[in-house]
Design a protein around this nucleic acid. Sequence first.
DNA 1: ATGTGACCCTGGATGC
DNA 2: TGCATCCAGGGTCACA
Length: 270
Amino acid sequence: MPELPEVEVTRRGIARTVEGARLERAILRTPALRYPIPAGLARQLAGRTLVAARRRGKYLLLDLDGGHLLVHLGMSGSLRFVTPDTAPQKHDHADFIFGDRVLRLTDPRRFGALLWLEADPLQHPLIAKLGIEPLTREFTPAWLHQTLKGRSLAIKPALMDSGLVVGVGNIYAAESLFDAGIDPRARAGSVSAARLGRLVPAIKKTLQAAIRAGGSTLRDFCGTDGGMGDFQTRHQVYDRAGAPCMKCGAPIKALRQGQRSTYFCPRCQR
DNA sequence: ATGTGACCCTGGATGC
DNA sequence: TGCATCCAGGGTCACA
């Protein structure tokens, strides 16, 4: 479930709850997620203060004094606060213990990542080549038009390419393209400036609405409730194959682009 | 450089 | 009930 909005909500929850707090102890139960977790890392982390929680794309950067924890939640990861007496379950890979607040990393599929960096994390290979942040002023129709110029791949996988734009996952790419009335199969370099002029604000609007929704759902981020956000009830096209388009009533269609499912309205998106 | 597909891993839903 | 298959909100990598 972690898309940019959920990562951002998670970041805010961490910042609100334990920024400035001392990481008394870390428990690392799993030798490797996407990448190996060094054996001595838990001991190395103990006693450090959490200075800040940042986000770059879908990566969380937890700045401790003397280094940085880089966390990615992959497809199935989550970070939640639990109480110290909450027994770990099968896929609970890591606990970060801040007094009576325990930040617990869960990730059944283990596509996520946990790295310890002592150098500038923004220079790390995983971060350095990331694309533009969609919620910044720099992300404009003109920028997107220039970036996609000459590209023949379809607009939807282009939006999902984190080397171009970060944080736009499979759901938000579909929802944003619906909002802007653009066929997900259109060649990226052929989408008109006028259409990109609708797409860019659609992306910003979609992400911001999801952050608000996630924020309301995860308001008790520090609690133990692992409930999902309610924003899926607002999906216009995602996972609605065969259901009537909310604008025109035509049946929503599904197709595959790359290895991912795409949903769109064949009448509204041309 | 760009585009495409395989692959990483577990679990849930579905079909036989 | 068991088993096979497919699918899932992420990203990296090899290869054409």
